[in-house]
Design a protein around this nucleic acid. Structure first.
Lengths: 196, 196
DNA sequence: CAATAGATTGTCATATTTGACAATCTATCT
DNA sequence: AGATAGATTGTCAAATATGACAATCTATTG
């Protein structure tokens, strides 16, 4: 009996608010009160559903990483029976799309957590795993698409393309000439050519 | 008359302490008191020589960017009459060196400021200029080294190598398999080959 | 030595932040 | 209806952060 639990909804609501606050005030610049206000709940609610400050950060880390992992699985699944030759360009489109006006919040959070990794060991491990999954996934596609290339080469190119994409995203956000985005993508394609 | 000014030394001393604090507690996680203690001065000293919190951050931004700009000029100068063919490998060595034990503090500070760019407009502008300088400098070397390539191609490759290096540095710091470092460098060299 | 620019220290008031816990309310089930 | 698990609110105390400013000290120069 008793009342039905709101744990899942409230937790999501709070973490959403936390993310918005982080974007605005930074990770350690965000107080629990700010999060509470942004989530439109009392501060005690955060304590009740999540815990103290560190618990909040840990919860955020887990959620953001799981979100990306899930997206990755869905993408993989949707490309299940598509020949990699056709699928790969879509991957590149995704990796090198530019969002000049509103930067995708997820990328900000990931970057923030990357920078805070020393203070949050959980972030370090989970992010490493996530990035490993991503590059492995790209590598798998490459192996499919380029039968002449060996596995090692594909892993190398996959990792490099991922790095290119990450930094390029940051550079675009910094407001560097948008022409560079085309450059990054062109280089990614040049790397693919080496696998032919 | 009066006493000789300590502005330069004290400012440096304070900013040094600030950097150490940032590494440990994060940008907004660092209080003026912590900085003062780390610098072994009273908090009022910070106020006296630099100002309030925002002034402190702005001062840090200016210093770190100027530091890199200066290093870049020195590097350029030291390679003045060296043929780019011999100089380029050194550039790559620098961009893809790995520091597994102690991450260079400068890179941390740059990353932290990148992430905080929305809150500190000065950081955004200065970092963009800095990165532009760096990629331009690399591009210049490439133009020297590969007479068959056109300027645009060189700029593209320079930017891509820079991106590769930046992200690869972050990935290494995150503790990803060190073999990937070799991959990133190999890809950089593959991109150079496209200029031959 | 006396004046003075600048270094250094100290203190106050105010506002925030956080952890802890008590108290109350309310949906849901028997 | 009444019990109860869980939601929600409220409050306290302790710690910390910051801005402002007053007061004192000390090298340096005329």
């Amino acid at each position: 009996m008793g009342r039905k639990s709101l744990k899942v909804e409230r937790k999501a609501q709070i973490l959403d608010a936390f993310e918005r606050c982080i974007v605005q005030y930074g990770l350690e610049g965000t107080s629990l009160k700010q999060v509470a206000d942004e989530a439109d709940v009392k501060r005690s609610i955060i304590r009740h559903y999540i815990g103290n400050r560190d618990d909040l950060v840990d919860a955020l880390i887990e959620r953001i990483v799981r979100t990306y992992q899930k997206q990755l699985l869905e993408l993989d699944a949707s490309a299940e029976d598509m020949p990699a030759k056709y699928y790969l360009p879509q991957v590149l489109d995704y990796l090198f799309r530019v969002e000049r006006t509103s930067r995708p919040q997820n990328k900000i959070i990931i970057d923030v957590l990357m920078v805070a990794q020393d203070r949050y060991p959980k972030a370090k491990g989970l992010l490493r795993e996530l990035f490993k999954s991503i590059t492995d996934s790209i590598a798998k596609d490459l192996i499919d698409a380029y039968p002449n290339a060996n596995e090692k080469q594909c892993q190398q190119v996959a990792y490099s393309i991922w790095c290119l994409s990450m930094s390029n995203g940051s550079m675009m956000w910094l407001g560097m000439d948008i022409a560079y985005n085309q450059s990054a993508r062109a280089s990614a394609e040049a790397l693919l050519k080496t696998l032919e």
